[in-house]
Design a protein around this nucleic acid. Structure first.
Lengths: 335, 335
DNA sequence: CTGAAAGCGCTAACAT
DNA sequence: ATGTTAGCGCTTTCAG
């Protein structure tokens, strides 16, 4: 498998009858080049099928044009969650329009600082951190050494100088629960996400806030770990503890879907016996029967926004610290 | 945002009291270094928190340690399919154990050859191509110029010299349909995938083969484009054309899920009126009610295998041209 | 087994 | 506006 050596900038220069610098300028879109030179170089590039060598460019310019997407250790959970798939889609498509390349970095917990070092070692221009857990302390520390944008508020109170794209999970959860209340539910339980993630905690808080405001007592919380199976188990425990509950707000559609299965298994009808609301508005919401009332969050756009923010940050443009994306309650048959 | 310059190999050499060459040898695991030297260098590396600069390494060694994951233009379909998420998970976790880095490359059809040129331009050591469509001709041509591994047989008869990891879609589909036949179904229709993808065509072929072998007539085929909505629409058309069908084999669980919804909408019971089998065994299979009988394919392992094959190919180890992974029929309530 | 020296292909001052 | 000159940080012959 011997590849013919790709043409170099030098070859282009020779062909176009100019110096390497000029070629470099054309390639990089410098304004200080005559139209004729541009034309000659462009032609030479096309004829030779020249592609700049990234490695050389990185080394010389000390910019890598590479962004890292940091993925938490628990890849199974991460990759099976459609929310993350959508976020990645947003990131990837946004970056496809730029000169930046995306590399996936799995944060291994065997070598927790290996990842951080790779990032700090000048191998990327910036990082996108998704699904930040409480124990992932290294990434918030990273934020001082490298442009970093978090998808979802990181779990750390030490730094308020990080860049974040997020939704208002408290308000969003609250509005979902308010919807349940408006439907006449009074004993509303919650199936929570992991308590080491901001999204999990904030949604609990929103649930509680809505109940408080309505003068209702919390009917119980169980954690479902953002999985279908976890949602089923949590629903089961809730029914054991609070047999007369009439509403459930789950922090994700996957858990809501599990909850609906468990309710059916226990002989309870949705929504007549128990109304169920979820969070995400992904295909769990529409493939569950009855289809789920849920909080829609713009996951693809979240990825787009993360990528945009990071690129701006790297290129020195002004960037707001926190960018909040809108959510909305989508009412379907489960409530 | 001024980053302190990361330590260089030169700094490590100074600290360890050896030459840069020796440090380089240690870093690259050369056997020709004394244990003392190794120890000194290792210590210096740890003290300094040295991380090799990838760009410099790439440039000097002419190896990039980077693999591209080529993603088809239609990112929405790609990212919303849990099959691909699993494959990526397999690829990413496998690569995490190696020195290779994964970059995601979206094949834009505006600049179809831009992608190919990037790949050929010496920017990656190899490429993984997933979800190959008939019109993606450039990638099969690529296979001569760069190590490439396809996930799923590519749609091209011009090249039989490509490397592929796949499942036997014909046999797998056939066994699913045989299961339907064994359940007593006689008028079995098919909801097909896109006909510009091998997986789509092969599953049609498997369906047909099973019917032929049993001496049954095909009850009809409609295409569902691998989406839930497409599955619903296809089911609807099938019912219009073949009102008395009693079995459906869908080429994906997402389409099977859509089919089940449509059957319910039309007042038909699953499986008593119509038995439904899918393909994939992802969460559509278990979140649809009734849960789907389906063909399980090892999607994470497929990603692992692709990554392994590509790395071997790059490193000159022997690699089988086609690696087939096993499938199995998982029987649930929908049949 | 180790060091010295010569680049890898490109960018970025600095001249002109 | 363009060319000249140095490197970027590392690997890799080639000597020793």
């Amino acid at each position: 498998m011997t590849l013919p050596a790709p043409p170099t900038l030098e070859a282009v220069a020779a062909r176009a009858g100019v110096s390497r610098s000029t070629v470099s300028r054309v390639v990089n879109g410098s304004p200080r080049v005559t139209p004729e030179a541009i034309a000659a170089v462009t032609a030479a590039i096309a004829e030779l099928g020249y592609v700049p060598n990234r490695a050389a460019r990185m080394l010389a310019s000390r910019r890598t044009q590479t962004l890292a997407l940091v993925i938490p250790e628990d890849t199974a959970l991460f990759f099976s969650d459609p929310f993350f798939a959508s976020v990645i889609q947003g990131v990837a498509t946004t970056l496809a329009r730029t000169e930046y390349t995306l590399t996936m970095l799995i944060a291994s917990e065997e070598a927790p600082e290996k990842t951080a070092r790779y990032l700090r070692g000048g191998n990327v221009d910036g990082a996108l951190v998704l699904s930040h857990h409480r124990h992932d302390r290294s990434y918030t520390q990273l934020a001082g050494a490298l442009p970093v944008v978090f998808g979802g508020r990181p779990m750390s109170n030490e730094h308020d100088d990080v860049f974040v794209v997020d939704v208002d999970n408290v308000a969003a959860a609250r509005s979902a629960v308010e919807h349940l209340i408006a439907r006449g539910r009074r004993r509303i339980a919650h199936i929570a996400g992991p308590d080491d993630m901001a999204a999990g905690l904030d949604r609990v808080a929103g649930w509680r806030a809505a109940l408080d405001a309505a003068g209702l007592e919390p009917a119980g919380v169980e954690s479902g770990g953002f999985t279908v199976a976890g949602g089923m188990a949590a629903m089961s425990r809730l029914l054991d503890r609070v047999p007369d509950l009439d509403g459930v707000f789950a922090a994700s559609d996957s858990m809501a879907s599990g909850a609906v299965s468990m309710l059916r298994e226990r002989g309870l009808a949705v929504p007549s016996d128990v109304a169920v609301a979820g969070f995400d508005d992904n295909f769990f919401a529409v493939s569950t029967m009855p289809q789920l009332t849920t909080v829609a969050q713009p996951s693809v756009e979240l990825g787009c926004a993360m990528a945009e923010q990071l690129v701006r940050l790297i290129e020195g443009e002004p960037v707001e610290r926190v960018r909040m994306l809108p959510t909305s309650v989508v009412v379907r048959a489960s409530t």
